[in-house]
Simulated assay, not measured.
Amino acid sequence: MTVRFAISSSDGTKLAYERFGDGPPVVLTGGALTNRTAAVPLARELAGLGLSGVVYDRRGRGDSGDTEPYAPVREADDLAAVAEAVREEAGAEQVFSFGMSSGGLVVLEAAARGAALSRIVLFEPPFTGAAGQFQDPVRVARLTELISQGERSEAVAYFMAEIIGLPPQAVEGARQSPGWADMTKIAHTLGYDTTLLGDATLPAETLAAVRIPALVLSSDASTPVLQEAARATGEALPSGTHRSLPGVFHQVPPEDLAPVVRDFFTG
């Protein structure tokens, strides 16, 4: 597909996106340390099931632009702009959205603010405060310091170890992976994700404002804290449900995930 720069968010930020398939659009919003390429496998699976998967670079990532200062409402406006653009492009009556991890926080914010989305699916939104694991402001401040000093590699490692809580061997494995360079390029956006999350408690006002049907998914191999966060989010949404799927830590294979997403959006 062709990368598109024809759309801009409400603050003028250029947004790059690609669309796979010709069915009703599903806008896929990625999580921390990813650009739109991470969602391409799921987009292709959805396209094969009669939908169209739309991947886009969140602001500050990949081929999209950025505008300071950062604010969650600006990310919500970005998603709304992409949804409206693909609605017109596809001549679609409905547009859906899937949010991965912190991308789910963007989807929730957009839906609460009235973005033209018919249904949403969230995969493990990290409201770990629902399970008693709150985001530590001291650690967030240290992450912010590393980013401001240009210590991109150390910021990514710190985020993985101290914010996510990955063991040292997992962080070292990530350092040695081919994707490490790409992650360090967008290390500055980690501050966006921590801002979106706040103290990691459930945002009652935002959740209450989401009136459309919502499905919250989790992997049965994720940590108990992430699984509880997903369950609690599903229960807190006015029209929400929660479902656990077989998978690995913080992930379900696209070929297994896509049919569940398709069935919810088209059911």
Rank of each mutant, 00 (worst) to 15 (best):
Q227I: 05
I164G: 08
A174N: 13
E154K: 07
T184W: 00
L143C: 10
S222F: 11
V171K: 04
A208I: 14
Q227M: 11
A187V: 07
I147L: 13
Q149R: 15
A221G: 10
A181Q: 09
E162L: 09
L146E: 07
R142E: 14
A141N: 15
L197V: 01
A187H: 00
R175G: 06
R139T: 12
L196Y: 06
A204F: 05
K185T: 02
A187T: 01
H188T: 04
W180Y: 08
Q227W: 02
A141Y: 12
V138Y: 14
Q169C: 04
A155T: 04
Q149Y: 02
P168H: 12
L196D: 10
E154S: 02
R175D: 03
A155Q: 03
E151T: 02
L226E: 06
S177Y: 01
L166W: 14
R175C: 05
I163P: 05
G191F: 11
A155P: 08
A208S: 15
T194H: 14
F159E: 01
L190G: 01
L143I: 11
L166G: 10
L146Y: 08
A214C: 04
V140F: 13
A155C: 03
S153W: 02
Q169F: 14
A208D: 15
E162T: 09
I186G: 00
Q149M: 03
G150W: 04
I147W: 09
I164D: 07
P224R: 07
S177Q: 03
L215M: 12
A155G: 07
A170E: 15
E162A: 11
